[in-house]
């Protein structure tokens, strides 16, 4: 049965009729067309579907859409402003943090939550924050370096 779901997605308030058994992942991808959030393992084991709920990284594949009613959702599409990549997106691009790209939106959203909470994380803190995100291409080194570069870029601009 569909009922009305009110929430904010990437800064925009929305009201949609959504099935009570719909996952947040299906709502974002199928109802809103925000396909940047990836459907990977689809069982909570890979982190490709990571989005922010009130600033905290959460797995959209293991979250009911209605359970985040009234909350603030951010997806990878919400990071760039006026066509400009965010600091993390730019760092992943410039430091080869992305290869096939499938894990990248989840990695960047988990890293975004980390940098908001801890603008200058250590390498261990970055690895801990990304521990729930799997990548089968990079071996993680370039991903960690990309997050470090984004943090350093912040330091310079500050």
């Amino acid at each position: 049965m569909k009922t009305l779901l009110r929430l904010s997605v990437n800064g925009r308030l929305r009201e949609d009729a959504v099935a009570e058994n719909a996952l947040l992942l299906d709502y974002l991808r199928d109802t809103l067309g925000l396909t940047g959030t990836k459907q990977g393992c689809d069982g909570g084991e890979c982190g490709a579907c990571t989005v922010l709920v009130d600033g905290q990284p959460r797995l959209a594949c293991s979250t009911l859409a209605h359970s985040v009613a009234g909350r603030r959702i951010e997806t990878i599409e919400g990071l760039s402003t006026e066509g400009n990549l965010s600091r993390l997106q730019r760092a992943f691009h410039e430091h080869l943090g992305s290869q096939c790209g499938f894990c990248t939106p989840g990695m960047i959203m988990a890293a975004e939550a980390l940098l908001r909470r801890n603008p200058q994380p250590s390498r261990d803190e970055i690895r801990a924050a990304l521990a729930g995100n799997l990548c089968r291409c990079t071996g993680y080194v370039k991903i960690v370096e990309s997050v470090e570069a984004a943090a350093a870029c912040d330091e310079v601009s500050a």
């Binding site: 709920v53 905290q56 797995l59 801990a128 729930g132």
Partner: peptide
């Protein structure tokens, strides 16, 4: 328990 993203939920 699991990973950081799980623990937020």
């Amino acid at each position: 328990v699991a990973g950081p993203t799980h623990r937020n939920a």
